[in-house]
Amino acid sequence: MKLFGVLALAVAANAQYFSEGWVPGQAVTAEPSAPSSGGPPPSTGQKPQQSEPFSFSSFLDINNILASGPVKGLFEKAGINITERLEAAALSPWDDRIPLITDENYFDMVVNETMTEEEEDKRVWVIVVSAQSSRQEAISKYVDKAFDDAFNETTIAGDLPFVRFARIDYLNVTYVTTKWSLWTAPAIVILTDRGQTLRFYRTNQLRIANGALREFVRREAYLATPPWSSAFAPGGSREFILEFFAIWMAKIYRFTVRVPRWVMILASGSIASFAINLLHGFGRKAPPAKKTVPRAPVASGAAASATAPTAVVPAAAPPSSPSKAKQRKGKGKK
């Protein structure tokens, strides 16, 4: 009886896995089969996630090398948590609320921004070009701090609805900075007219601390500064030169950024050493030194006679014959 009771419970528990089957006249439907215990999961029609393809640059990335098992174990034995160090180094030093302008989003964010006519007439972009990502620029940290303060004060006051704040990482943006002919950082850029009117300010040309940058923008004091209006500026006759140069510089940067920095340093050092040796090889070569033949030793007496200077005796002059006139005079006296 106990055996029949156990079988009845098993059948009742597994009854949900059985189907009544197809009845004539019933529409054919594709019902997903219920998963059975221990069986493979049903197919959902989606391709399984594939691992990322092997990349030579990722294989040589210093972060991946430091995070690998053997190297990580060596650091742990030395009492260093390399994972925390790498995570701290990867954190952005900037305020996440301020958008970053890159080569990829510049046109969508600034040039082709969707705006009303009023917004298009009054839109002002206040952009800081920072080099703080190198973590070696004290001046950039100072400028970023003043810029963030101006952004916070403007956000709290809410009195500049047509002003937008943005940041450019100078070390990771190539096309925009080249097109603007901006070769140093940090700098403040006031951009209007969808990028057609640009005003640049160095750190020694503009007071930005203690709310000075916000007051400068709020009072529109930048209008007193003439915009960039050279032949290479936007709308200039030679703008195409900087445009062409910026495009190719960006392509070169996208190629070189895939190579780890330490590989670039080794390669550039090897190329520089080879070039220096090659250039020195074309210079004027020094004449070969003359070979000295050693002399054989000689006796002391012979050496003294050989080294003693010989007196040069002048040759005796031949006797001069008396002239014919003197001979005639002598004959006359006799």
Rank of each mutant, 00 (worst) to 15 (best):
K122N: 14
R123A: 15
V124Q: 09
W125F: 10
W125Q: 05
I127H: 05
V128T: 07
V128Q: 05
E137Y: 13
Y142V: 12
D144A: 10
K145Q: 02
A146P: 10
D149A: 12
A150F: 01
F151S: 07
N152H: 12
N152Y: 13
E153T: 03
T154V: 09
I156M: 11
I156H: 09
A166R: 01
R167Q: 02
N172M: 11
N172E: 07
V173F: 00
V176I: 13
T178K: 00
T178Y: 02
W180G: 04
W180I: 02
L182G: 01
A185K: 00
A185H: 04
V189S: 03
V189D: 04
I190D: 03
G195W: 03
R202L: 09
T203Y: 14
T203Q: 11
Q205C: 10
Q205L: 14
Q205W: 04
L206D: 04
L206Y: 00
R207P: 02
I208P: 03
I208F: 14
I208V: 11
A209C: 09
N210H: 13
N210V: 02
N210K: 15
R214A: 15
F216C: 06
R219P: 01
A221D: 10
L223M: 11
T225C: 05
P226W: 00
P227I: 02
S230N: 12
F232E: 02
F232A: 11
P234T: 09
G236S: 04
S237T: 11
F240K: 13
I241T: 05
E243V: 15
F244C: 14
F245Y: 07
A250S: 13
K251C: 06
F255K: 13
V257P: 01
V257E: 14
